[in-house]
Computed example of a mutant assay.
Amino acid sequence: MRRLTMQQAEMLASKFRTENGLGQAEPVSVKTLLRKLQITAMYRPLSADSYGISCKSKTGKMFMLINSNSTRGRQHFTIAHEFYHLYFDENPTPHMCCGGASVEEKNADIFASVLLLPKEGVYAMLGKEEILQRKVKLATVLRIEQMFQVSRSMLLIRLRDIGVISENERQAMQSIPVKESALEYGYDRSLYVSANEGVTIGDFGEKARILFEEGRISEGHYLELLKMISDGREDN
C-alpha cells in the first residue's frame, strides 16, 4: 500500500461520511458511529504508549479496545484511526496502535485527521483575516477543538496541513498550556483528561450469551466475559 496523499485521504473520509449519513462539515460523534456500525468497543487502561487495537472476524464482526488512560480527545483520534484499518486497510490484521511509522499507520493517522476535522467545517469557523494572514487566534483554536472534540496537537497539525498556519505558528501555539487556556476562556477541561474507564459500547453481553448457548465458549469463559462488563459499565 502506498502512502495516501492528503487529497486521497480527504476523498476516503468524504466517502466514509456519505456512506454513514454524515454531512461533509459536521463533527463526528465517534460513540454514536460505533453503535451505528455495530462495532463492539471497550475502554480499558493500557500502557502509555498503546492507544488502542481493532480487529475484524471472518464473518465481519468488528471490535475495538481503546486506552481509557488517554485523554478524551486522543481517544476520538484513536477510534477514527481504527476506522481506517477496519474499512480501508488492505490487510486489516489485529494490531496495537502505538504511533508506529509504517505506511498504513501513517495512512490511518491522515485519515483520522481529515475525518474528524473536515476542511469545510474548519474553514467555516475561521475569520476572513485569520485565513488571509495565516494567524489563527487562540480563542478560535479553542472553539474548533471543542466543536470537533479533538486534541490541541491534532488540530494544530491539521491547521498547518491545510495552510492556515505556518509550522512556526504551530509550534508557538503548541507551547500554550492546554488545560489552563481552556479554563481561561470558560471551557471545561473534560476534553483534555483521561475518561471512559470501564465503558463498553455495543451488545457485548448479548454476543457472549449467544456464544455460550451455541457451545462456542465454556461457562467459565462466559462468566469471565460477564465479569468484564460488570467491572465496567455499559455506555447507553
Rank of each mutant, 00 (worst) to 15 (best):
R3G: 04
R17L: 03
T18S: 12
E19I: 02
E26M: 06
E26A: 08
V30W: 03
R35E: 09
K36E: 13
T40I: 15
R44F: 12
R44S: 12
A48M: 11
G52S: 12
S57G: 14
K61S: 15
M62Y: 04
L65Q: 07
G73V: 03
I79F: 03
A80F: 02
F83L: 07
F83Q: 00
Y84Q: 07
F88E: 00
F88W: 01
F88I: 05
P92Y: 02
C98L: 06
E104S: 07
K106D: 14
N107D: 09
A112P: 00
L115V: 03
K119T: 15
E120G: 06
V122N: 01
Y123G: 05
L126K: 00
E129P: 08
Q133P: 04
R143N: 13
R143V: 07
I144L: 02
S151Y: 03
S153M: 08
M154C: 10
L155Q: 00
I157F: 12
G163F: 09
V164N: 04
E169L: 13
E169M: 14
M173P: 05
S175G: 04
V178E: 08
E180D: 06
R189D: 13
L191A: 02
V193K: 15
G202Y: 01
F204A: 11
G205F: 12
E206R: 10
A208W: 07
R209K: 15
E213W: 15
G215T: 08
H221K: 15
Y222F: 13
E224D: 12
K227V: 12
N236K: 13
